[in-house]
């Protein structure tokens, strides 16, 4: 019976400590306990890594731990739905991205939340640029030839993507819409298998985030035509921007941002935003984000208002592109 007694003892001790921590939450002394950050994607993915790097610094500023909870499923909408329904006390936040808080609106007609109506924007963290990639023996040599080739051979080319709702799917649809081509889209289950098919030469081209593509490009197993950002990226100095290469209309970035459930008090949002901005100014955080090929937003783009505008513009940008796809 000793085990029961020790269990009871442990229960009481744990309860006592928990009660002491659980003081009523108010905006003045926020935060008084651990904050849960929902990441709607698997641990180790670009959104997860960016989120971990930034929140580790934010936790120091806020004086409380930020616990990352990966809630995976349905292109990130499962985790986003959970965050939308969470208590708006500032203790449950979410790192959403281009897919969950913009492209999901046209992609999922039965979406259980709306990025604008159910969330309070907090802060834009970092974006991962998108590249136009092709198998190494794909005939076109540069972006101009690529555009001509794809238009001329629209019936023959295959474009890979990492599954409906993924960044690579949405950005490829955008590219196809701009080029006014409809290649056959070959779906894969995630970036890894899609990259494998591209390296093996089973598909012709795809659009993907910079992180996993850099080593393959450097090793010559695939080639990159252009990067869809206004400026070249330090990790791929030889890859021209889409503007330089003659396709300025194609601008896409997988942005990641913190959101809170609707109705979270403005004071809490301001506290969190200040912590995030401080993290983005930290030299160590910047270094690690840049190592991943990420783009860190300028000071003017880091306010909650700027994020609200971004979400609005992005929904407007993706809706016409992705609507006919479903």
């Amino acid at each position: 019976m000793t085990s029961i007694r020790s269990l009871a003892g442990a229960c009481l001790a744990a309860l006592a400590s928990l009660c002491a921590v659980a003081a009523p939450a108010s905006a003045q002394n926020y935060p008084t306990r651990n904050i849960t950050m929902i990441v709607p994607f698997a641990a180790g993915g670009p959104t997860d890594v960016i989120s971990r790097i930034v929140t580790a610094h934010m936790a120091q500023t806020l004086g409380q731990s930020i616990i990352i909870e990966n809630v995976v499923g349905a292109g990130g909408t499962t985790g986003s739905t959970r965050a939308a329904r969470a208590a708006n006390d500032g203790y449950t936040l979410i790192t959403g991205h281009m897919g969950t808080h913009a492209a999901s609106v046209p992609l999922y007609p039965k979406l259980a939340y709306h990025p604008e109506k159910d969330f309070e924007p907090v802060a834009l963290l970092a974006g991962t640029p998108i590249l136009i990639l092709a198998r190494k023996d794909f005939p076109p040599k540069d972006l101009k030839e690529f555009i001509a080739y794809v238009k001329a051979n629209a019936e023959k080319v295959n474009a890979a993507h990492a599954g409906i709702g993924s960044v690579s799917h949405a950005s490829c649809e955008l590219l196809n819409a701009i080029l006014q081509v409809k290649p056959v889209g070959v779906p894969f289950n995630g970036t890894g298998p899609a990259m494998n098919a591209l390296v093996a030469g089973q598909v012709d081209y795809m659009c993907d985030q910079i992180v996993n593509a850099v080593p393959q490009i450097n090793a010559g197993t695939i080639k990159a035509y252009a990067i869809a950002t206004p400026e070249r990226n330090p990790s791929l100095p030889d890859v021209p921007t889409t503007t330089e290469a003659g396709l300025p209309a194609f601008q896409a970035q997988a942005w990641n941002a913190i959101f809170a459930p609707k109705g979270t008090s403005p004071a809490i949002i301001a506290t969190l935003n200040a912590a995030a901005v401080k993290a983005l100014d930290d030299p160590n955080v910047r270094k690690r984000l840049l190592e991943l090929g990420s783009v860190i937003p300028a000071a003017a783009d880091r306010t909650p208002e700027a994020l609200a505008t971004l979400v609005k513009n992005e929904i407007a940008k993706w809706t016409p592109v992705l609507k006919p796809a479903t």
Binding site: C11, A14, L15, L18, C19, A22, I67, E69
Partner: peptide, 12 residues
């Protein structure tokens, strides 16, 4: 593995 340990009403 993150899971709640004790009844919610006792914590909050």
């Amino acid at each position: 593995l993150p899971m709640p340990m004790f009844p919610r009403f006792l914590i909050q």
